[in-house]
Nucleic acid binder design. Structure first.
Lengths: 300, 300
DNA sequence: AAACTGTTTTTTCACGATAAAAGACATTAT
DNA sequence: ATAATGTCTTTTATCGTGAAAAAACAGTTT
């Protein structure tokens, strides 16, 4: 089993949804750009759609023959990339406890346990190392540094530095910049979410990420923009792991975001700075309180 | 040829130098820690030393039989790690020109050209990607972002942010901290180098790195400390590539460092800030002037 | 001629295999 | 009893290989 065809399966599923919406299919190259895959994959998709009687396909003529059915779709779990699978397994072990700082990480064991090749695990660990949670010993094992209080503090220190600077840069952007309409749209989404918070509070983390990424992008600095990947990853797993008071936390955060947005729109640097600091402070607090003391004891 | 024995060869050479100095050899485990390799490798080294008649070896008795000769050493190029070889090849191509922003990077071609497996090249590119010079297209090639003026500006922006903060943290360190003796030692080395600048100006870049790493470490933040890897890498290759006015540049930098060191020792935050800013400004200038205009045209 | 489809080539991704190196265990010497 | 050596096992580093996916090329259709 040298390589799974998850790219095809995922694109196939997305193509089915497209079919549901538009009831027709464009040309092969166009479909390729739409789905973000090569024409080779598009043709594999079309071939299967023909096979399962979804469409009749003859050169450029693609006729939709019937509605899609639930069983046309590939199972969700077959559409994940190997990297996603490995990351999930790894993070589960990390957060499940028993993952003390200083612990060794064994590539071979991880690979066997997840059921993948060692190369994929190695590559994952290398990519993952930039998050600052693991470290490589030359010609030897990886060492877990642990999701400790120290880690959270170091992470938030950088985050605050970067976001304050980005927010200032944002406020200084010319009136005709496209970011202002993006900001208006986000403000709208915030208000809608606030209006139905009881039912939709779980949707906040996705909105949160889009909001902060928009601000960081204003820095026009790749290192700042890329660093948000670290923050996003940590907050993503942190939210999955700690659901306590999620609704309240999100409600507070939405309020802070709205103040922050108003400040940005006012272009008053003092206000921006204050609103940004306030929000970052409570974000840090949220992260810190969710790290149990046992986890924060660092081996030195 | 699945894995070269460069670890052994490098450790062997270092062990020969040790032999020259001490005229004797400690126990296997001790030698292992000294050379930073496992006992397995130590025993391979001792076996060869016995074979070439350098020592007589019977259990714990290791008798030195003769002086080391130049031809006892393995050739330098056989002691490099694969990662170093790939990095050098890659950077040579990157700086040799013809490496325009937007250009595609082909793993297979790189691997063939360097004469290594694709896995090693892939792993190198993943590790290298954190320097912000290349970017991966999902399921497809890497894209070169180019060593442009924009890159230099983004890099130095972060550097300045981090170093100013680290320097302030440094100055606030308690008097009994070990860093102050480290700083004194570095000051000494600076003075010595300044005294013989005509002959030893090439030694500066190594000293420069040690000095700045000491300061960054005072931040006690892994992201700041790790970021210095990016700076060090860029400056390393930049210096190799642009030797113009190297002596003058280094002479100026040493002077700035000495002022900077005095400021740190005074623990006067205002002075520290001023000295740090001044030095960082000229460092940025040096980097910028060495980027030719053609290189700074970025495809958008 | 521009954009599409059909076909072939190339590249990426992931695996298993193997030598180098690390690490663990058993034994022996001080 | 501690610390070394001798031996065996496990893990890491790297390669070649093959299927999935991308990309290039050639031929058609509008």
């Amino acid at each position: 089993m040298s390589k799974s065809n998850n790219v095809y399966k995922d694109a196939y599923n997305r193509c089915l949804r497209l079919l549901d919406e538009t009831r027709s299919l464009p040309s092969e190259p166009e479909l390729g750009t739409l789905l973000g895959v090569s024409r080779t994959t598009v043709r594999t998709i079309l071939a299967r759609m023909e096979e399962t009687g979804l469409i009749a396909w003859n050169k450029r003529a693609k006729t939709v023959l019937r509605e899609t059915r639930p069983d046309d779709f590939f199972p969700e779990e077959e559409t994940d990339t190997l990297a996603e699978i490995i990351e999930r397994s790894f993070m589960r072990r990390l957060l499940a406890g028993g993952a003390e700082a200083g612990m060794q990480i064994n590539e071979l064991e991880l690979a066997r346990e997840i059921g993948v090749g060692t190369t994929s695990v190695r590559e994952f660990l290398i990519r993952f190392s930039r998050f600052g949670l693991i470290e490589k010993r030359r010609n030897s094992h990886w060492v877990l540094k642990g999701f400790t209080r120290a880690f959270a503090l170091e992470l938030t220190e950088i985050r605050e530095m970067f976001e304050l600077r980005s927010a200032a840069a944002f406020a200084a952007l010319p009136q005709d910049s496209a970011v202002w309409t993006d900001l208006d749209r986000l403000e709208d989404e915030h208000r809608q979410l606030a209006g139905d918070i009881a039912a939709r509070f779980t949707e906040f983390s996705e909105l949160d990420e889009r909001f902060h990424r928009l601000i960081h992008r204003a820095s026009r600095n790749r290192f700042i923009v890329d660093f948000y990947d670290v923050i996003a990853m940590i907050f993503h797993y942190h939210y999955q792991w700690n659901k306590a008071q999620e609704r309240e936390r999100n409600e507070v955060a939405i309020g802070e975001h709205l103040v922050y947005i108003e400040a940005l729109k006012s272009r008053d640097l003092g206000k921006v700075d204050a609103a940004c600091r306030k929000h970052l402070k409570s974000a840090r607090q949220t992260l810190l309180t969710s790290i149990p003391e046992s986890r924060s004891l660092q081996k030195s």
